[in-house]
Amino acid sequence: MIELAEVKKTFSRGTVDEKVAINGLTLHIRDGDFVTIIGSNGAGKTTALNLISGTYFPDEGNIVIDGVDVTNIPEHRRAKFLGRIFQDPLMGTAASMSIEENLAIADLRGKRRGLGWGVEKSRRGHYRDILKMLDLGLEDRMKDMVSLLSGGQRQSLTLLMVTLSIPKLLLLDEHTAALDPKTAQRVMELTEKIITDNNLTTVMVTHNMQQAIQYGNRMIMLHEGRIQFDIEGEEKNNLTVEDVVKKFGEKLKDETLLVA
């Protein structure tokens, strides 16, 4: 359960470049919600995720995750609550480390790291099993460096890393945008499977309206740092790209959103 109350964030305050990114955002995400967030460039989508994850701190307002006020808790100490996947497939994994080493790092998300062996023998079997699920043959390449993998493979591995210790909230930041359409499709299917299987509470930022409509039980449109609309359930299921364009076309200003 995530609660954002009247959150505000302004960049370069007091300079000519002052930019109000988030302007009084109030949002309540229930356990099990799969929320998609759309909005044109500069609407505050990524800033909203960065505020939830603790990459930035809000100027005003509160953020509560699972009953804990995390407003002033730094990013690395929110890790036990959050899993996050970035747009850039290179950002979710450590390239100079092997596949199993990356999995082992994620295995200890939010836990104390000590002088025990990084890859525990007893976990290897489990790593192999979950890698098999990807169907990419990575289970036979566990000692290979991640730098040898393609973008799609790295993003799939990042997804697996999230599932190793189930977060309270999964943040997806346009995580398929940098992949070719076919790979993006595969990664998105895998994402949905992982979310459903683990009943993950998820927030997915996307630039692709079709994707925002197709996935999740709830959809939010941000505009100038505020929620423009917030629909869910039946209403969302019946929504089409045309509906959204008709209603909010002039506010979107951004054709890339309309590319299905």
Binding site: H76, G83, F86, A104, I105, R109, G110, K111, R113, G116
Partner: peptide, 28 residues
């Protein structure tokens, strides 16, 4: 040996991908 411990992994990841290991809960 140290670089193959949990702490050593976190250190290697800090040099390799600081953002990633921070989201995984390490104070870089």
């Amino acid at each position: 040996m140290f670089l193959h411990t949990q702490l050593g992994f976190a250190m290697r990841a800090t040099g390799d991908n600081e953002q990633m290991i921070r989201t995984l809960g390490t104070n870089t």
